[in-house]
Design a protein around this nucleic acid. Structure first.
Length: 114
RNA sequence: CCAGUCGGCCGGAUGGCCGCCGCCGCAGGGUCCGAAAGGACGCGGGGGAGGAAAGUCCGGGCUCCAUGGAAGUACGGUGCCGGGUAACGCCCGGCGGGGGCGACCCCAGGGACAGUGCCACAGAAACAAACCGCCCAAGGCGCUUCGCGCGGCGGGCAAGGGUGAAAAGGUGCGGCAAGAGCGCACCGCGGCCCCGGCAACGGGGACGGUCCAGGCAAACCCCACCGGGAGCAAGACCGAAUAGGGACGGCAGGGAGCUUCGGCUCCGGGGCGAUUUCCGGCCCGCUGUCCGGGUUGGUUGCGCGAAGCCGCCGGCGACGGCGGCUCCAGAUGAAUGGCCAUCGGCGGGGCAACCCGUCACAGAACCCGGCUUACAGGCCGACUGGCAUU
């Protein structure tokens, strides 16, 4: 899955819909095309030193790798944001957080569209 | 065995499933993304965080910019001596001072007769001082009158007390009215000579008592030596559309004047705003090809190096020389992982099997050499002081 690399894309995603969960925050933005879904990760310095931030980003990436291919929708950008809990939370729970967040985002999108 | 000092090293291990990023070999065919440059997708093999990767404090390599040489000024840095090194503010070996029974540890450790400045509080005084004091003592008064006492003009002293971080070398003897390097001895200090050492410095000798005298240079300063600036977002290359720049060609291009025949000037003309008139503003044609610059983007710089390991030789050592072997991360919104199992370490519980909890500091970003700071736990070696034993 293609990664987000431009600051512009991250800022656009931040303005769009977001869903906070115990282990992470997910942002979703509809790009308005039919291309494949893309994904980005954000870990701020608030989360800790470089080792902590790296670990959180890797767990988020692994969760996305295992979860997103079945759930991500084409034409959307997803940004996963790490939280203080992302490093210690059991991996299965973190994965479940991601699934629920995606379901909720898709649900509210469908509701506002109609 | 206990206590301690110094130096070096490690800093979880093994396996399974699923992933990520480079490299090499094979294949060189196709597909996809992109305007291009370029990138992705196959099979096999192998590699993939640290001792500090950190702080970004020094020294270099490399790159661009600047620069004729030398000297000076300003600014910044360094500061016992010798050596090591590409270089250093680093390291090694010495010296001096201080601490420890000792192994050993600590020290910005040039200059305070070049000058300026500061030395809080206390104290009389912090650079040439006299508070308490010690001593001599005029005139005066009293008495038991060739003396003594009271008091003290004036003067001497810096020993004792007191203040202080520091008060003008220390101790002792002599000396003196009282004292004082005033004299003497020893110690300290200073320059001179001799000896040892490459040197810092050490040892010895005779001499010096105006030994005119404190500390701070991490206050300014003086002296000696060193130093161009910026940094991989350095720099190099590739490179579309659009706008703008240049060259060449094609088509269109009213009149007059001047002309060195290339053009120039004036008048007219056309276009732009919903439209008409007036006034004002802006523009001077259309099109094709090519060139240069350059944005998003891409490639490179980018890892064979002051490299690592082993051995021998030289050196007290830092280190150097020779020989052999090895190839060992290369990301760029940034790979080096996620999950699980077994073992291991530590803490707690239990006689035990075992159970529960936990696993330090911390993540490469152009590359090296250092310094500093952080760090659970552990290993090895040398040495010191005790105790015990033979």
């Amino acid at each position: 899955m293609q990664r987000l690399t431009r600051r512009q894309d991250f800022l656009a995603a931040a303005r769009a819909a977001s869903q906070a969960m115990p282990g992470l925050v997910v942002q979703m933005r509809a790009r308005g095309d039919d291309e494949a879904a893309r994904i980005g990760f954000t870990c701020t310095r608030k989360l800790g030193n470089a080792v902590t931030r790296n670990r959180i980003k890797r767990r988020l990436r692994e969760a996305a790798r295992l979860t997103l291919p079945g759930l991500a929708r084409a034409g959307h950008d997803y940004v996963l944001i790490g939280r203080m809990t992302s490093g210690q939370r059991p991996f299965s729970a973190l994965q479940q957080d991601l699934v629920i967040a995606l379901q909720r985002l898709h649900h509210t999108q469908a509701a506002t569209r109609t």
